[in-house]
Design a protein around this nucleic acid. Structure first.
Length: 364
DNA sequence: GACCCGTGGTA
DNA sequence: TTACCAAGGGT
């Protein structure tokens, strides 16, 4: 056993399970993905919930399941529509991986989500947490599903001082879950840990007096609940300067381009823009030369109409936005289009460019 | 292990 | 305003 788990044997496992699961049965929230245990819906919900709040996910989940209700529906869906359904949720590789994996299930597993750790973990976008979540919730398999909640809850219950920001710490908490998980109801056990983390055992000012398992909690006994878990700070975001142009033709249509199929905001659509490495050249000159060289677009760059700051988890965009007009017509392609106000609605944009769309495109 | 990959809410 | 956060995974 890991040295971090020296307190495991001090806790009555059966009593702990009973108190935790009993609380979950009484207090669990009524959430749309809890209406049944359809493995596909459990899967979709778990992908959406990665690093994303429950309140944010709810409307996306309802719309997504309404539009793509089954494995087959999502397998056959147009990628553009799937991305559009994810627009605004962030971490867009999640949905590309999801559709790719769903297609694999459709073709290789006869449309049935696999129920073994090895098979399910081999699917794109399904890591250790998601594998355990689907296996336990959809199939009742007693596998750990260790997310940030579970690490926080168990760091307090067992007084584990490992840094939860380190990837290597996850296995310590998986070991803790394996020591306590209910084999009668792994689904409720795992969900209860996360629900407890979300509602009671919160990051700051946990509600210990309302906690159903405070009698089992070492941190509560020692008064260290506000010092746990240990988590090192994230480093600051890098700043990136951009210049973008809302480029119109003589009929009021606007140029949009598709982002590369990998990296930041992959496959989303945007207004033409360039990263400004050297400010000395000037935004207009760099936009002009980029559009000419990359797309053979001849245009005039007009007024600076505004600027947008957009904060990502790991960087900050500062975008100067210009108006522009096409000098000669362009040819549409898979990655470059001229669209009117109605057509543009069907393309998925990152939030930063949605702001441009609202502020600088729909005028006049 | 370090870094990349989004967004909106909150103290 | 700043910093941190929220049901992680890929490379």
């Amino acid at each position: 056993m890991s040295n971090s788990l020296k307190n495991v044997t001090n806790i009555n496992k059966k009593e702990f399970q009973k108190d935790l699961i009993g609380w979950f049965e009484r207090e669990q929230r009524d959430l749309p993905w809890r209406k049944d245990q359809d493995p596909y819906k459990v899967w979709v919900s778990e992908i959406m919930l990665q690093q994303t709040r429950v309140d944010t996910v709810i409307p996306y989940f309802n719309r997504f399941i309404s539009e793509f209700p089954t494995i087959e529906a999502l397998s056959n869906a147009d990628e553009e529509k799937v991305l559009k359904a994810w627009e605004g949720l962030g971490y867009y590789s999640r949905v590309r991986n999801l559709q790719s994996a769903v297609r694999e299930v459709h073709e290789q597993y006869g449309g049935k989500v696999p129920n073994t750790p090895k098979e399910i973990s081999s699917l794109k976008g399904v890591g250790p947490y998601t594998a355990g979540a689907i296996l336990s919730i959809a199939y009742g398999v007693p596998e750990p599903a260790v997310d940030g909640n579970v690490m926080r809850v168990f760091s307090r219950i067992l007084s584990i001082w490992d840094d939860i920001a380190k990837a290597s710490s996850r296995k310590v908490f998986e070991e803790a879950v394996r020591a306590f998980i209910s084999h009668e109801n792994p689904s409720y056990f795992n969900q209860a840990l996360m629900e407890l983390g979300a509602l009671i055992c919160t990051p700051t000012s946990p509600s210990c007096l309302l906690c159903p398992v405070r009698e089992h909690c070492h941190a509560f006994e020692e008064g260290t609940q506000n010092e746990l878990p240990v988590k090192t700070k994230a480093k600051k975001q890098r700043k990136v300067q951009l210049a973008a142009v809302v480029l119109k033709d003589t009929e009021g249509r606007t140029v949009i381009q598709k982002r590369p199929s990998s990296g930041l905001l992959a496959n989303l659509w945007q207004f033409p823009n360039v990263e400004i490495h050297l400010p000395v050249l000037g935004d207009r000159e760099q936009l002009l030369s980029n559009l000419k060289e990359e797309y053979e677009i001849q245009c005039d760059i007009g007024e600076l109409v505004g600027h947008i700051e957009h904060v990502f988890s790991h960087l900050v965009w500062n975008i100067n936005v210009y108006e522009g007009t096409l000098v000669e017509p362009i040819k549409s392609s898979d990655t470059l289009k001229l669209v009117d106000q109605e057509e543009i609605e069907s393309f998925a944009f990152p939030v930063s460019h949605q702001k441009m769309l609202r502020q600088y495109y729909k005028k006049e």
